[in-house]
Nucleic acid binder design. Structure first.
Lengths: 245, 245
DNA sequence: GATACTCTGTACGCTATCGGACATAAAGGG
DNA sequence: CCCTTTATGTCCGATAGCGTACAGAGTATC
């Protein structure tokens, strides 16, 4: 359903902060090649090791970068929303990565053919600087995920994950079953249930069959591990929100 | 100049693969600003959030990138040796990172003033491409660390860590107490002891008061989790070893 | 050679998480 | 409205790793 009513239907490329932060000239050069695409839940934006034909600039959706191991176990290493783009490996020179990108919350994105992006990137202008700064924010998120996986409880990780996701939806609710969350966090579904029960009992969230709502965000932020704040602070520092109109 | 690694005992900048892979013209432009520095064990090359005055190109040492949490707990997120450089945040545009960089195995490195590197990087030439590809390899390592932290046993992680470290020393032995390894892996010292006992009992390694020697590398590679191979394969793919002579 | 210190080994109870089994409950399609 | 599917809640024993404590063994120092 309408997951983000405030944006009532119509998406524009500038809802993506990277595109919005571009100087007008650069933005308008890209505009003809930007194609609006709906990203349904569960869609694999790219497969592990696959070729990148497009990069995706999400506007109101969330894409998870995750690793799937030979055993089938998986773990999310980062999440991308309107603040970023999917496909950094392209301009980093690798063309592919060992991770998958899966749509975690349906919505729309604008995609740009790889060739166009690479050409623009080579110009070494504002676009390049912006994308590299974003990549560093992504690196921070991955590093913090590694640390969080090592040292923090499922409940703390669930809290972090909720906050990171909701930040990217500009909302206080999201649609996501505990089963899917468990896949993202790389833990058992039962572990997520247990953590969710605690959060609900404490009055911080409310959920029901795949519908999660944060009731008391301040308290949730108090309870979450430091990992959330580190990622958020670093993202804000690297990507000042200077949104063009 | 002496681009000749065969000069035994003396380290040269080209022992670092990134420097070695540069076209002669680019390399020689950097050479006057490259300063040889000894990196003693435990030295903090960078502090969390600190300013980056230099980037470091290791030749025969290993530098760990690690996070230290408020609680004091720590975890390594990547290791850097002759194949890379310390300080990617500089050219990514962030100037600083939330991680620390600590010398894990003493040796020497060549450092370059930040300003010089940034200027060269902006030229958008082979140096830029090389550094970005290296950064992507680093990203892969971080992502794999996150996954490994989530799903694998201490023994597997120790094995992975040993192999990654030894690859960077071109050796089958290293000096490192179990206490330090535990800090890197973010586990207890006793956990490392236990894992090391198992590996020694199986005849894969031999160790003694901070001196570790791998006896049967093939078997160790069989026993390690897939994370090691993923990182190695991706590093090799992104950074073909075209070492200048 | 005595002594202090560092490194490693081991043991014990504790907790978080796992793995699996199963129960309930809501949603949705015929 | 029944019945299947999906989502969630709960219980159980098993286990990996933690925290703590302590013991032995090697190394260094004087």
């Amino acid at each position: 359903m309408a997951k983000n009513p405030a944006l009532s239907g119509i998406s524009t490329p500038t809802q993506n902060h990277l595109l919005a932060a571009l100087p007008t000239a650069d933005y308008e050069r890209l505009l003809p090649d930007l194609e609006r695409v709906p990203l349904p839940l569960g869609m694999a934006v790219y497969e592990s090791g696959g070729k990148l034909d497009y990069v995706y600039f999400p506007t109101d959706c969330i894409v998870s970068l995750l690793y799937v191991m030979k055993s089938g176990a998986s773990a999310e290493i980062a999440v991308v929303g309107y603040e970023g783009l999917v496909g950094v490996a392209l301009f980093m020179g690798g063309e592919s990565t060992p991770s998958r990108a899966v749509v975690q919350s349906a919505g729309t994105a604008y995609r740009l053919p790889s060739k166009i992006l690479k050409k623009e990137f080579e110009h070494s202008g504002p676009l390049q600087h912006l994308l590299l700064r974003y990549t560093q924010a992504l690196i921070t998120q991955m590093a913090q995920t590694a640390v969080c996986n090592r040292h923090h409880s499922v409940e703390q990780q669930l809290s972090r994950w909720l906050l990171l996701s909701l930040d990217r939806l500009n909302s206080d609710e999201l649609h996501m079953t505990q089963e899917l969350i468990a896949n993202m966090l790389g833990v058992r579904r039962e572990g997520v249930t247990e953590a969710a029960v605690k959060l609900q009992t404490a009055g911080l969230i409310k959920y029901n069959r795949g519908h999660i709502k944060v009731l008391d965000r301040p308290k949730l932020e108090e309870r979450v591990c430091e990992c959330y704040a580190v990622v958020k602070r670093e993202t804000d520092r690297l990507l000042p929100a200077r949104i063009a109109s």
